[in-house]
Every structure is written in C-alpha cells, then in structure tokens.
Write a protein that binds this DNA or RNA. Structure first.
Lengths: 218, 218
DNA sequence: TAATTCCATGAACGATCATTCATAGAATGA
DNA sequence: TCATTCTATGAATGATCGTTCATGGAATTA
C-alpha cells in the first residue's frame, strides 16, 4: 500500500508551479522532522522531493524563503484543523473548549512530522525574530479562542480565576504535552494526555468538567 | 560594573585545563542562547571565549563532544539548583512540591541563557538520540521527585487522582511555561507564572494548596 | 639552570553549504 | 506548425564548516 498515491506532474505551467512548490514544502516538513531544521540542506530537499537541487532557488528564490513558507503552511494547517474541530463541537463553551483540547491531545500519528517541524520552528524563533510572529502562542488565534471560552465558563460557573490565568494554564499544559510527545512519539498515548488535560479542566472548572458534568456527557 | 570579574588564566597546567574547558563551555552556552545550537561554530566559540580556534579540538577532541559536555553541565547545574531549593524547604510534601515549582517559576534573568540553551538541546534530542537520555523529562530525577511528592499528597489528602496524572500535569505545565518564557524572556513575569502554577496546584490538591492552606501559609 | 615535555596557536585541508547560471527541452501563443 | 518564452537541470563558484597539524613558546622535570 503506497503511503501516497503518485500524483503525476502537471504539464500546464501554472499547475506545475503549485505542484512543485507543494512538493518542496512537504519534503521540507519531512526533512525537518527527521533531521531537524539545521539538517535541512538544499541537497537533502532535492533528495526528499525527488527534484533537482536548483528547484529550491527557482521556486522560492532563497532557502530561507522556502522555510518561511513551510512555517506559514504549518500554521495555516494547524489553524484550519482546530477550527474544523471547533466547528463540529456543540455550541456550549465547555464542549467547545474540550473540542480544542481533545483535538490537540489526539493528533494522529500522521501529524507527527508536522508537529515536530512546528516545534523546530518554535525553537528557532527564539534566536530568529523572523519566525516569531508566526510562532508566538500568546498572539495566536488559538490563544484568543481559548481565552474567550474561558471567559464564558468563568462567567457561567462563577469561578474565582482570572481569564488570563485559566487560558495560560491550558496552553502551557498543551505545549508541555507537545514537548513531551515530540521526544518520543511512539511512547505517547492519547489516553494519557487526555486524562491529564481533563483532570486539569475538571479541577479549575468543576461545574463544567467535574464528575457530574462528565456523567452527563455519557 | 563588570559582568564577570576577569579571572586570570592559571599558569599551572592542570588548573589551566579546567579553566579553559570551563571557559569553552560557558562560551558555548552563551553562543547557543544567542544563535541557536546550529549557530555554534568553532569560529564563533573562539570569538565568544577569546581563545584560539584550535582549543575546541584540543580540549574536547571534537565539537560534538564539547556540546555533550555542555548538556551535561546544564543538566547537573539544574539538578543541583532545584535540589538546593528543595533542601531549604520545610519537611512537608506540599511545601517541598511548591519549592520545586517556585524554583522553576522564579529562575533569575541570569539563568536565561542556560534555559534557552537547555531547550535547544531538548529540541535537538528529537532528531539526535545521543542527547535524549539527558533531556528526557520523564526519566529525570526531577520527575521522580515530583511523583513521590504527589504520591504523598494524594495519600494525605485522599485525592481521586493517579500519581502519574498529577505529576505529568505539573511537569507539562512547567515545560509549557519554559517554552513560553523562552520566546520572550523580557515579557515573562514570574508573578504571572506563579499564579498559573499555584492555581493548578490549588485545583488538584485543594486541601494543601487551596485558599485555606494559602491563608495558613501567611 | 638545562633538558624535556606539553600546550596554544592559526594556517591549511577537504567536505559541504547556498546560490548562480549556461544549457537543453518543454509549454505556450501566433 | 513554427517561433518564442519559460522551466528544469546540475555543474561551477565562493564561503564556511570541522578537523588536522607544524610550529613556537611556556610549564615542568631533572
């Protein structure tokens, strides 16, 4: 069973351009996941993509521009993914917040490369300011969504906790989970991460995620 | 005010060896913090240490052996630091656990370079197995200590939570905090991180960290 | 002090890096 | 169909990488 069906190279020029750019971006994600950001050379990109070495400069001018596109691709894909999960959730703050958390906790093995590549960029952002805006969790739409959901829960449940504190706690937890996961994706068990997050939510928002609420979920 | 008093190079050979090795390790930490792990070249190490380029190979044979020593140095220093904080804490599980958390939350700006360098190694450990044993949070003495303290609290407070879950939650929270911190050390406020961690502990161990317990602390 | 051993230095080396570019060939438009 | 334009290729280039090593000088030992 082929991991991915071999899509034929389009003959039309405008389609070929998209095809090759995408192929290089995918190759970059795979290469970053396997060898780290610093292990990604133009030669290795050629090897992983099956294209010629000159293609990186032809389609992205410079290597770091390709990497920037890769980061944008990862950020967009992640955002689309959690927003999709959010759209399938019920229209209650608790269900929506849990949908976000569950989405992160249960990312498929298929996403391993993307997650590891993302973490590589996040680390690089510490010393490379160009990556920072796209990596800063605090300024992401995700964090904003978590904050507004926490605000709704706090108002509804009358909890004695600040919105910022609750939202930071949840994001720290998820990021710590990613970090732990990334070091050994094989070891990671979604059930384990799920319990840790669920326990945290049940502890700070007991009326919404405590035992009673869980029983009501079914 | 000099950031560090200029220690004279020892003339005795055995002392000079220690001096130079230490100087290279310090230079490496600084260089990693400023330019990332991949930005550390032998030339840059020479620049940061003020020594000749050949010194890295003379004292550490190969560059990656130096880096391995740097990681060991960081791990040892961190362990000594939290163990010292632990030794100053009262002999109750809650006080000891809080001492660990507070130690992480309130790391001085002085430690910024060490923390960022540590995170760089942790990221590198994903693709470089050689670093993994020294980076794996799950296998560290720190995690073991957190687990045993959680076990004591759970037994004492009769909490309905597994030791592993509680310990993972705390370590995830702290690692997420580090990650957030590292992206912008200037922005980070210890008070903010402290509240997030305190809130989490109060939520899962209310009898020990809840309002009543906090009031008792003074 | 004199003989010896060891260390610190930086130029030299081969490998690899990102990038450039001449060239061949395919897609395009007349 | 034929002329034109653009694309894909990989060899060539200069810079930088980690490492080696000959050399001068300082520390050590007798």
């Amino acid at each position: 069973m082929p991991a991915q069906e071999p899509v034929a190279r389009p003959r039309r020029r405008d389609e070929a351009k998209i095809y090759f750019r995408r192929k290089l971006i995918d190759a970059a994600i795979e290469a970053i996941a396997r060898h780290g950001l610093s292990g990604v050379s133009v030669s290795r990109l050629a090897e992983y993509s099956g294209l010629a070495r000159g293609m990186v400069n032809l389609h992205f001018d410079r290597k770091d521009r390709l990497l920037h596109e890769v980061l944008k691709h990862l950020a967009d894909a992640y955002r689309a993914s959690w927003q999709e999960a959010l759209s399938r959730a019920a229209d209650e703050p608790a269900a929506r917040l849990w949908a976000l958390v569950e989405h992160d906790v249960a990312r498929k093995a298929h996403d391993d490369s993307a997650l590891i590549a993302w973490l590589a960029f996040r680390q690089e952002a510490i010393t490379n300011p160009a990556y920072r805006p796209l990596c800063d969790t605090r300024e992401s739409a995700f964090f904003g969504t978590v904050k507004s959901l926490c605000a709704a829960l706090i108002k509804d449940g009358g909890y004695d906790i600040k919105v910022e504190t609750a939202a930071l706690g949840i994001t720290f937890l998820l990021e710590g989970l990613w970090l732990d996961w990334s070091l050994d994706p094989q070891r990671y068990r979604p059930a384990s991460g799920r319990v840790v997050c669920r326990t945290h939510l049940a502890a700070i928002f007991p009326r919404h995620f405590g035992k009673a609420a869980r029983a009501a979920d079914g």
